[in-house]
Design a protein around this nucleic acid. Structure first.
Lengths: 213, 213
DNA sequence: CTGCAATTTTGCAATGTCCCCAAGTTTTCA
DNA sequence: TGAAAACTTGGGGACATTGCAAAATTGCAG
């Protein structure tokens, strides 16, 4: 067995604490719930909470872990003849068209974003995650293109592509908080994506094109 | 008299506290200095510090206040035949060419950025300021172009132009922290500006062009 | 100049996040 | 089954931030 009972129990405890905390935050807001309350509700000590989560914000934004390498993954998986930005645009369109909960297109995400929106600490954390996404992407672009460390272009490209992704995510959040239904927002975002693609220069749209397979 | 003695004294106290705090932070780092120490060094009580500054971070980033409407000012002051992005590019080039301390091109800015860099709290605040710059710009663009509130284009344009500004500021900080001299960094940034302008599409470069005077 | 009202400053107490350490407890594995 | 390793917990504490009411200052009218 690749995983002992101990590991399983740890994951379970961690997940339980995060779930309990998320429930409380969704119900009463981030600042209004103390870590002590979370610990109580999860039947563990405050120290145990901090044993699993470095900071209170991580109790709520734990699930965003799958996001940090999203752009890198998409770029690495780009098709033959497709550029980095092209792959991201395509993947985004696919997620949006399928009204995927992975990008927040689901009922309940509005309340989730609402909690983040009303807490400076959570907003910071979200920004930090976005930064991480961008840094990872820059690193991937350097690998994929073999650009030297002092070449600023991969950094600029990562900035543009992250802007694309970040703007889409932010807009989805805003529209849902304004009362839009996922299906409606999905349609709006597809239009937004066309507008954004229009705003990008050919330099960006043709960066890091993968040779035909 | 437009201003009483009381007002003057308040401004003076505020400035003094900020100066003392900045000195301590530059010397020992942001987290290593407590608010109590700042208060002591400034001969006031902790409550007085909080009377002037909403949070510890504001003690260090107080001077950045002149930045929040920078892009708006530049865009509003664009010349006849000049676009929003064009004006920002021109103003940036002027500041960079003149090695202006307003954009951090000065000895000592490296240490300043170093303090920010090593404190998550300060980095967040800096990001928040950048967000404010962008929001102001978006508002200005809507005013200048008369775009309706539901038109997403001004928001996208503000995003692109802020990206320009933010990337320049971040790069200046990075280069200076890496040991570059202001004059050298100035030259590098001019090259960077050319590269960035190259990356922007005509849609962006020709947005909100002011009619000939 | 003096005294009062407005404004500031300060002390004190409290809350909440987060860290550190030492003392249990539980799980793993020889 | 008996350590050794890994978790959990209680206690203590540093520090940012806030609320409140007393105390010190200041502006200004008389």
């Amino acid at each position: 067995m690749a995983e002992g009972l101990r590991e399983r129990k740890k994951r379970q405890t961690r997940q339980y604490i995060s779930d309990v905390a998320t429930g409380l935050f969704l119900e009463r807001g981030f600042e209004a719930v103390t870590v002590a309350e979370v610990a109580d509700a999860a039947n563990v000590s405050v120290n145990t909470v901090y044993n699993y989560f470095p900071a209170k914000e991580d109790l709520f934004l734990d699930r965003s872990k799958g996001v940090v390498d999203r752009l890198s993954r998409w770029v690495r998986g780009r098709r033959g003849g497709e550029s980095a930005a092209g792959a991201v645009l395509r993947e985004l369109r696919e997620e949006v068209e399928s009204v995927s909960p992975r990008i927040g297109l689901m009922d309940g995400y509005a309340r989730f974003m609402g909690v983040i929106h009303s807490s400076p600490a959570l907003r910071s954390r979200l920004w930090a995650i976005g930064q991480e996404v961008q840094d990872n992407l820059e690193h991937t672009l350097r690998e994929e293109t073999g650009a030297p460390d002092d070449d600023p272009v991969p950094s600029l490209m990562a900035g543009q592509i992250s802007w694309l992704h970040g703007t889409v995510m932010a807009t989805i959040g805003r529209r849902l908080m304004a009362g839009g239904k996922p299906a409606e927002v999905s349609r709006d975002i597809l239009v937004l994506l066309d507008e954004m693609e229009d705003l990008l220069s050919d330099k960006v749209l043709n960066y890091a094109v993968r040779g035909p397979e």
